[in-house]
């Protein structure tokens, strides 16, 4: 089994701040992490490798400092890591990103055929969930998105059965390798690596591929030039002008507070009273 996992290094969104005056992102000092959703993909890939043997190759497209994310992936137990970095890639939207990633995966596959590609459900910065499907289309892989569970995998028959999350239920899908899976969050828990993996990752040389190495033959299809979408404006959401109206609590009993709260709720939404009463009756 040869599994490629696509991970992205993202700023820890919990720590992002907006400059109060210029409304721009203050990136300074915001730590970067592996996109949390990608860890589910990585763990699933590692578990399959542990079960069936083979190798897990992790790739990311990003600036040179994204090698930290790859090193971390190695410490979790990935076998090999490749950083795709080139000035040409800068400013790629999802279409251009999936072009670069799929070119690189095709190149990787020339050495050792790729049986499965994993991506996260989505990133927390781009947050589009588009890159996975984009790669699948470009490489002609069978696409399995929002996978909750791999129910069966038979590498020799090249058959896989998964549970795919859908509205109101779970689709049980069967397909053939090679396939692309986007893993749903909460499906597993990334392992706590052993000391030997930590040493291996700390010492690893991370391969760096530019456009040529990544097999990107049409530079016009990546980066800003290869991106059909154009970001015209970035702005902070307008804060609500009025702050919450306080409901007096000091020196009041919980009952008094509750009654006061209900008074204002019904005053603000008179229709709720009868609707809720109706529902209560019905329910």
């Amino acid at each position: 089994m040869h599994i490629v996992v696509c991970i992205k290094q993202v700023p820890d969104s919990a720590q992002i701040r907006i400059h109060p005056v210029t409304n721009t992102i203050m990136r300074q000092g915001v730590p970067t992490i592996i996109n949390p959703f990608d860890l589910f993909a990585l763990e699933e890939a590692l578990a399959l490798r542990d079960r069936f043997g083979g190798t897990v190759t992790v790739i990311t497209m990003g600036p040179p400092m994204a090698d930290a994310a790859l090193r971390k992936a190695l410490s979790f137990g990935a076998d090999r890591a490749i950083l795709l970095t080139d000035r040409l890639f800068a400013g790629s939207d999802t279409l251009a990103t999936s072009y670069v990633l799929s070119s690189a995966i095709a190149r990787i596959g020339q050495e050792t055929p790729v049986d499965m590609v994993f991506t996260g459900k989505q990133t927390i910065d781009g947050d589009t969930a588009q890159v996975g499907p984009g790669i699948a289309v470009r490489l002609g892989l069978n696409q399995l998105t929002y996978v909750e569970r791999i129910v069966e995998l038979d590498p020799s028959l090249r058959r896989i059965v998964v549970h795919r999350r859908a509205e109101g239920g779970v689709q049980v899908l069967e397909t053939r390798l090679p396939c692309l899976i986007t893993m749903l969050e909460g499906t597993n828990h990334i392992r706590f690596a052993g000391m030997d993996d930590m040493f291996r990752a700390a010492r690893a040389e991370i391969a760096t591929w530019g456009a040529a190495e990544a097999g990107v033959d049409e530079p016009g299809r990546c980066g800003l030039r290869g991106s059909p979408t154009v970001v015209k404006k970035v702005f902070a959401p307008t804060p609500r002008t009025e702050k919450a109206t306080p409901i007096e609590t000091s020196g009041k009993s919980p009952q008094e507070i509750a009654d006061a709260a209900i008074d204002v709720i019904f005053a603000a939404k008179p229709s709720l009273r009868s609707e809720m009463a109706g529902r209560r009756q019905a329910g």
Binding site: V231, K232, V234
Partner: peptide
């Protein structure tokens, strides 16, 4: 974008 802290057009 950016986890909801910003919007972009």
């Amino acid at each position: 974008t950016f986890g909801g802290s910003l919007l972009c057009t």
